[in-house]
Structures are given as C-alpha cells and as structure tokens.
Design a protein around this nucleic acid. Structure first.
Length: 569
DNA sequence: AATAATTATATTGTCGGCAGCTCTGCCGA
C-alpha cells in the first residue's frame, strides 16, 4: 500500500467523523496524521517495520495501531463501519462549495440525502432552502456546484496519472518478453488533466502482459479485453488503456497513441502528399515497404520536418512550424536555475531554511527565494513585519556562509480586496523578490478582481504575480479575471507572471502563458513548495511552459543570479 | 487523538464574510 492510500483512509475517516459530529480535535488529529503520511518521503511500511511510526509528528499510539491494521489487513474496521453509517455519497455532497460537515450532516439527517443526485432533486423541489443554515441563494449555489462537479468527472490530475504510470511501467518492464513500455496519450503530452492513462508495451507475447495486468493489485475490474489491448478500472479511480504492440511496430504505435488525434491526422495527410502511408504499424512507401523507424524522430525527419516533442502535439500550429523549421527550442528542466516561490516553517510549510538550501543545491539550482505568507493570511501564520525582517536578517547571515548558492529574501504578499498589498512600500523595497497573489475575496466581480490585480502590478516593488487565476484542479474553478487586460498591464509594468508548478494548480495555464509571452511578458516557473516532496514538482511547471512554446529566454528563473537581480531590480 | 508537561490535564493555527430566528453558526482561506 502506498503512503497516500493510507493517508486517504485517514482523511476520509476524519471527514466521516466530522459529519457525524465527533469531537473536532479528534477529527483534526486524523487530518494532521493524513497530511503527515502524505508528506513522508519514505514508505510507511518501512517505518512500520522498523517500529518508528510513532516518531512521526502527528502519529501517536492510537493512529500507529490503526496504520498497523491497515498494513496487515488492507483496511480499517472503524473506517468501514462509519461508511456503513454514513454513505460515501454524503462525502461527495460535502465536497460542494458552500457545504461543510455541518450542512452535509443536516442534509443527511433532515432530508435523508445520501448523494448528489438526491441533493439535486431536493434542491430543484426547493426543499433545501427551508433547512436551518440554508437559504435560497445557497440552494442555487448547490445546483451550480453539482453541475460543475459533473463537468469535470473525466478529468484526473496529471500527477495521479504519472505516478500510476511510473509504478505500472516498473511492473510491466519486468514481465517476460517485454522489450519496452511507455505512457502515451495526454499523460505523455503532459496535459494538466487526463481522462485515462494510456500505456503502450512492446512484447512478443501479448497474452502474458494482459494476464499479468488483469491480476495487478491496483486493478479493480477489467472493462474490455482484446487480443492486444486491455482497458481496466483501477482503485485510484483512473482507467488504464493498455496497448501491446509487436516490437517492430512499437514506435509507430506509441506515436499514434500519443496523439493528439488532430496532430496525428495532419502527419498522415502530409505522408500521403509525399506518397507515403503512416499508421500504427509503420511508415510505408508506395510499394508498401516499411521505411526504417528506430525513434519517433525518424518519422518527423522522413516527413521533412523538425522533431516535435510530445508536449507540443496539440495541433496548435506545431506541424506548420516544424515544416517551416520555425519550431521554438522549448525550455527544459535543466534550464531552470532556481525556484522563486518557496514557503518555510516561518509560515505554513514543513521546510526549514536549511532544508531549502540543501534540497535546492542538490537539484543544481544556483538560488532560491524564500517567500512566506504575509501578515493578513492568519490561517497560514502569515508574518508580521518584525518576523519578516528577522527572517531576512537570518537569510543574509546564511548567505555569508555560502559561496555557491544564494537564498533570496522575499515574501508572498496578499493582494488585499482593494488591490493594496499586505505591507507598505518601504518594507517591500527591502527584499529581493516580491510575489503578489490573491488568497481571499474570490467572489468579487470580474471587474473588481481584475482591477485589484492590476493595482498590484502597478506597484513598482511587485516582481511576480503568483497563481493568477486561482484555480485548484478538480476543486475550485478559476476566478473571473480579464486575462487580456491583465497580460497587457503585466507587459506595461514589466511584472512577471508565474506558472505555478503544483499539479493541483498549473496556473497560469499554457494558453495564457503563450499569450503572455506573445505580449512580451516574462514568465517565472515556481513550485510554491510547502514540503520537500513538492519541491520536486518543477517538471510539471516546465511542461506547461513547453506546451506554451516558451524558450529559456522567456523564463526569468533560467537566468544566472546577476541577470536575475537585474530583472528584479 | 496527539502533545507537552502541572505525569492528570489543558491545549490544540485565525478570522472575516455571509445569511438569517441579528447575534450566531458555518464556511473557507
């Protein structure tokens, strides 16, 4: 069992107990434990075997015993019992914006609502508004929320797909007769969300692979089986579409299954024009003979164009650009020289200042900016001015001890509802990096929130606007902003826009990042890390930049430190 | 339920906006 599967049980247990009305501090203890487990770098099973579970902060005697039960039996009795009492659908109801544990409980107890469909019915019949704690407005918000939830059913965050892909590839690689295996489809193209996970395997004997796949522990049920293909549902809620190819046709199958469809169709058409034929079996000449294909590069070369990396295969002009030899040399992970948005224990992160230095150094970065939350964000222990200055003094001292690495002083200052920043200018001007972002007042009108962010950009001390549309994938829609106007203002004020690399955000997205670049706006790719694991999420941000066709020169954290300082000045 | 310390017991991230049985509970950052 993986850490986050165990963490998930505790987090669901917390939700169930909260809905039941159990002591809130107990609920919070389970949440803390879940968070601690998800954050662990080492497998929980290992800690369990060495008897070190209770050493993890947030895990005491009772929770350690429950972890033992989960590891040994695969489930938790207390969790199972609660699920019998409170149907899983109630948890989905609780996920709706505006519905917390209290309102979910009221709906369940008073109206016997056990899932979203029943809630929708009740809301349409105007039965919800009369409950204590509800209103006509909330009732219509509920209907909106249900609609929203339905619309995103097929979108699972890329990180989930990539983690499952990594695990499945390890497993499949070791099966007898397997020559190669790769993810394909939108997972390989690094789309922010995916509908399913496509895998392509090169193997002599498809039956062996399919048989092993069907028996794999993550697999819940086989949905479809053909001689060389299998579709399964997994316990992670993500379907896997596995295609086994003859080793000779592996590259062309992988290429076709990577898509996107429109991109592939264009290549087929170009092949046709050149008297060739392209399909998943190979690339053929007029006589029907196989042309040698060792790598995907060979396909593009034969079709007389530059190689197009998977991230760019979206039929957004890349085929035309590649034929004209005008495809940009897009940014790579190795171009990144530092991370400019990192939180520490000074506010709400698990990282110590020294951890940031150590981990970023190990990545080969030359610098990193410490940007903790500002004072108004109480929930995140935002820093009062004195604390912020104390931290900056400490950082300057640390820098004196280091030659090959620099910590930059900074802050993630809240943009207050009126567009002012959370600290006065004389404080902001003392630090290296000022990030500005919105954390409250999402319900402002499009005009208000746009104007608010524009005002922040107009502050000369603001260097970067972080996660500008505020979306949390699968949980919160982006807020209404006039992107055109914001990009224009960012260009005018020379404010960089962040690509937040967290797979939960990926904000701004590739569409806006490309528009911003075209308007002359610089981009900064940041992890916004709150723990060591999330510091590793830079590749997701780089993927967004690649999909936006960005080159290293478009991204400020590819610069060496002196040039970066020049830009930030 | 975990933690710290008074080793039996207190504490455990805060606070503004919202809606409606207007001083309170709920929600969300």
């Amino acid at each position: 069992m993986q850490n986050f599967e165990i963490a998930w049980i505790f987090s669901e247990l917390a939700d169930l107990l909260e809905i039941k009305g159990e002591d809130f501090f107990k609920v919070r203890a389970y949440r803390r434990a879940a968070k601690a487990l998800a954050r662990l770098e080492q497998p929980v099973q290992e800690l369990y075997r060495s008897g070190k579970l209770s050493q993890v902060p947030g895990i005491g005697k009772a929770i350690a015993a429950k972890i033992k039960e989960i590891i040994e039996t695969g489930k938790l009795a207390k969790h199972q019992e609660l699920l019998k009492e409170i149907p899983a659908g109630v948890l989905a109801v609780r996920q709706l914006p505006g519905i917390g544990a209290g309102r979910a409980r009221a709906l369940f107890k008073e109206l016997a609502i056990t899932d979203l469909t029943e809630l929708e019915q009740a809301a349409k019949e105007r039965k919800v508004r009369s409950l204590k704690g509800f209103s006509a407005k909330l009732e219509s918000d509920i209907l909106h929320g249900i609609e929203m939830m339905r619309n995103r059913q097929n979108s699972i965050r890329l990180s989930v797909a990539r983690e499952l892909a990594a695990e499945l590839k390890e497993f499949i690689k070791l099966l007898p007769g397997v020559k190669a295996v790769s993810e394909a489809g939108s997972t390989r193209r690094w789309r922010d969300t995916v509908g399913d996970l496509d895998l392509v395997v090169a193997a002599d004997d498809p039956a062996t692979v399919l048989h092993a796949m069907a028996a794999y522990p993550r697999v819940k049920e086989v949905v479809r089986q053909e001689s060389q293909r299998m579709v399964v549902n997994t316990w992670w809620g993500l379907a896997v579409d596995l295609q086994v190819a003859d080793p000779a046709a592996y590259i062309t199958t992988l290429h076709r299954n990577t898509g996107c469809k429109a991109h592939y169709a264009k290549l087929q058409e170009i092949a046709q024009q050149q008297g060739l034929h392209l399909n998943h079996r190979g690339l053929f000449n007029q006589a029907g003979q196989h042309l040698p294909i060792q790598h995907e590069q060979d396909i593009y070369e034969t079709l007389q164009m530059t190689y197009i990396p998977p991230e760019l295969r979206e039929d957004r002009g890349e085929v035309e650009a590649a034929r004209a030899g005008r495809l940009p040399a897009v940014i790579e992970l190795g171009d990144i020289k530092g991370d400019l948005h990192i939180h520490t224990t000074w506010s709400d992160s698990a990282l110590q200042l020294a951890d940031v230095v150590q981990l970023c150094r190990r990545k080969g970065y030359a610098y990193a900016a410490i940007t903790d939350h500002s004072r108004s964000l109480k929930i995140a222990r935002g820093l009062e001015i004195e604390r912020l200055q104390e931290q900056h003094r400490l950082i300057r001292e640390m820098n004196e001890q280091m030659e090959d690495f620099t910590l930059l002083t900074g802050v993630e200052a809240d943009i207050l509802p009126n567009g002012e920043l959370d600290y006065p200018d004389e404080i902001l001007e003392t630090m290296d990096v000022v990030i500005a972002s919105v954390h409250t007042g999402f319900k402002q009108s499009k005009q208000e929130i746009t104007r608010r962010i524009m005002r922040a950009m107009e502050n000369e001390h603001v260097d970067i606007i972080a996660h500008m549309t505020g979306r949390i994938l699968g949980r919160r829609e982006p807020y209404e902003v006039d992107m055109e106007a914001l990009i224009e203002t960012a260009a005018k004020t020379k404010t960089a826009l962040e690509i937040n690399a967290s797979p939960d955000r990926l904000d701004i997205n590739e569409i806006y990042a490309r528009k911003a670049r075209d308007a002359g706006v610089k981009i900064c790719i940041n992890t916004d890390a709150h723990d060591a694991k999330r510091l590793d999420e830079m590749p997701y941000g780089v993927a967004v930049a690649r999909r936006a066709w960005l080159e290293p020169g478009d991204v400020i954290n590819t610069l060496d430190l002196p040039s970066l300082r020049e830009v930030l000045r």
